[in-house]
């Protein structure tokens, strides 16, 4: 057996899942399984105890799907990465989600892994966090009383991606003037673990930047914003040199903590080219 003994729970409704999420002790949530199953197998080989209760969301159909209504995009927690990649998204800045999905791992993993799993698995190197922060996404959680909590993605990651309630979906507003750019660098060509991911969103009018959000995943800490870079860009006007100039206005601790020279270099190249992409957005 590759896995330790476990009890599999298969709720069919979000409320039933929320109740089990609250009540089960010594438990883990199973979404796509691409993080959890590997982790449980690894722990077993090391002789380490693994969770006794596994709460699978596979049968909760209400937690699957992507929809656009009234200018708000909703992505449910159990939406597979490839299903989001295949989903019709509105023209404009939210198309970035296709690029994000396209660059995640390998095809069978994308068929299995879910948006909810990527956001809530508590691995610091998953890429969706930086993206959701940049897009100012709201994360929705369901309690046993049927009441919903809504939290900014930024706050969720500031809280080390912990929640007392079951994550059900994420919502993102469409913005007519917004532009986005995304960069992701892998650790090696052999294993698809991100070294870094960045996502920029800016609204631009008459070449002036405003409401800029910079989501950074440095793989060391949970995804976060770069306030110094955002403040600089929000005072800026688009120009061919903006990317280069912006590199003098970074919250350096985000990029330098436990970073090799290569990683620091890749951060700078990624930020510069992402800003240039937004400047030349068509």
């Amino acid at each position: 057996m590759l896995l330790n003994p476990l009890t599999l729970h298969l709720p069919k409704t979000p409320l039933e899942a929320a109740r089990l999420y609250k009540e089960l002790e010594d438990s883990k949530v199973l979404a796509g399984g691409t993080f959890l199953l590997n982790s449980m197998k690894l722990l077993k080989t090391k002789g380490t105890k693994t969770s006794r209760n596994i709460l699978s969301l596979a049968n909760v159909d209400e937690l699957k799907g992507v929809s656009l209504e009234g200018g708000t995009l909703t992505i449910k927690a159990m939406t597979r990465i490839n299903d989001l990649l295949d989903a019709s998204l509105p023209d404009g800045h939210l198309k970035i989600l296709h690029e994000v999905c396209r660059n995640i791992s390998t095809n069978p993993i994308r068929n299995m892994a879910t948006v909810g799993g990527n956001l809530t698995c508590r691995y610091t190197w998953t890429e969706m966090g930086a993206v959701m922060i940049a897009l100012d996404a709201k994360m929705h959680f369901l309690g046993v009383d049927g009441l919903e909590d809504v939290m900014d993605a930024e706050d969720f990651f500031k809280n080390a991606a912990r929640s007392e309630k079951l994550f059900t979906h994420v919502t993102i507003k469409t913005l007519a003037a917004a532009r986005t750019a995304y960069r992701r660098v892998k650790k090696t060509i052999h294993v698809d673990v991100p070294l870094l991911a960045i996502c920029l969103k800016a609204e631009i009018k008459d070449k002036k930047w405003y409401n800029t959000r910079v989501g950074i995943n440095n793989g060391v800490a949970f995804a976060q914003r770069d306030p110094i870079l955002e403040a600089f860009l929000n005072k800026s006007v688009s120009s061919p040199d903006l990317g280069k100039e912006a590199l003098g206005h970074l919250t350096t601790t985000i990029y330098d903590t436990r970073s090799s020279d290569y990683k620091k270099h890749m951060f700078r190249i990624s930020l510069k080219t992402a800003i240039e992409e937004i400047v030349s957005w068509k």
């Binding site: 590759l2 896995l3 599999l8 199973l30 399984g33 691409t34 199953l37 590997n38 197998k41 690894l42 596994i54 699978s56 490839n82 390998t106 095809n107 069978p108 993993i109 068929n111 299995m112 294993v191």
Partner: peptide, 22 residues
């Protein structure tokens, strides 16, 4: 551990890895 793809099967027409599927 989901790296090699030799365990690939199809579920509902999609390629998935049977080594990380319960």
């Amino acid at each position: 551990e989901s790296e090699c793809g030799t365990c690939t099967v199809m579920i509902n027409g999609k390629a998935i890895l049977s080594c990380i599927t319960l």
